[in-house]
């Protein structure tokens, strides 16, 4: 077995997860100016719901579909019924509210499913694909292809379509966008829905390879946040930061050892933060 090939495979899979979670956070941040700390809960909700529904005898496809819908309802409901009525509150308070929502979800998941981890079967069954001394499960290939594909699709949607630009405008200046006829409220709910969908897809694809429990949500939010922060909250940048983080994590884990993963990772984070703040430090600004 070739360690390098396997590290690349592992890095691609981990990177896809970073990207999946990161882009949803970026999207909501860019449209609603909120760092949604309950974002990872869409992952946990989908996973727990799918596991419970499949366990109750529903066909896998139906269980997954229903679980994705529940996650979507959560993501849009969080905006519509919790955050929107408080739109005038300070951003810091709203972030705390999303954190509170994350803990409420945890509680509900414990009540529904207990504390033990759960899982459900893979969608893509079959022997792993072997190449260059590495092995990759079919589900892992789906995770990588869909993870980067869908995230790239979201990036293109934002940068190149009319609806995407309306979303960006609604984010940058909701007042100006409204005056130009843009339905800002619809743009925001669209952003939450896309974010929820991406979190749910990440769950559907990744959880069969690991497991999910009531506390997976915040861990996923953190992953997404690291990728999003490194990209500078850019919907296209998060694709590269996610991929880079995944490969980096796998390589450090394989060649230096998992004990070095966190120290090295956080050093990189600090360096990136210093790099991104260089303009501020030197008194300039990149924005006109």
């Amino acid at each position: 077995m070739n360690l390098f090939t396997q590290s690349v495979i592992s890095g691609l899979m981990t990177g896809a997860v970073y990207t999946f979670l990161g882009i949803g956070l970026v999207l909501v941040y860019r449209t609603a100016r909120i760092l949604n700390l309950a974002h990872g809960e869409t992952f946990a909700i989908t996973g727990v719901a799918a596991a419970l529904l499949a366990g109750a005898g529903l066909p896998l496809g139906a269980a997954l579909g229903l679980a994705i819908l529940i996650s979507l309802a959560f993501a849009t409901g969080l905006h519509r019924f919790v955050l929107r009525p408080r739109a005038e509150w300070p951003a810091g308070t709203l972030i705390l509210i999303t954190l509170g929502a994350a803990f409420v979800v945890r509680g509900v998941l414990i009540l529904l499913a207990g504390t033990d981890p759960l899982s459900f079967p893979v969608m893509f069954e079959g022997p792993p694909v072997r190449f260059a001394g590495g092995a990759m499960p079919l589900q892992g290939i789906a995770l990588v292809v869909l993870g980067f594909g869908v995230s790239a699709g979201v990036g293109i949607f934002l940068a190149a379509t009319r609806a995407g630009k309306q979303l960006l405008a609604a984010a940058e200046n909701p007042y100006a966008a409204e005056l130009l006829g843009v339905n800002v409220e619809r743009a925001r709910i669209t952003a939450y829905a896309i974010g929820g969908l991406l979190g749910a897809l990440a769950g559907v694809l990744l959880i069969p390879l690991i497991a999910v429990d009531f506390q997976s949500g915040l861990a996923m939010t953190l992953r997404g946040f690291i990728a999003a922060a490194i990209s500078g909250m850019s919907p296209v940048g998060v694709l590269f930061s996610g991929l880079g983080l995944g490969l980096f994590e796998a390589m450090v884990g394989a060649y230096l050892g998992a004990l070095y993963q966190d120290p090295v990772m956080f050093c990189v984070l600090i360096l990136v933060a210093l790099w991104q703040s260089r303009n501020i430090r030197f008194g300039g600004s990149r924005r006109a």
Binding site: S10, I210, A219, A250
Partner: peptide
Amino acid sequence: RATDASTQLAR
């Protein structure tokens, strides 16, 4: 937090 253990097992 790892979501994949294949490099460890490969080693």
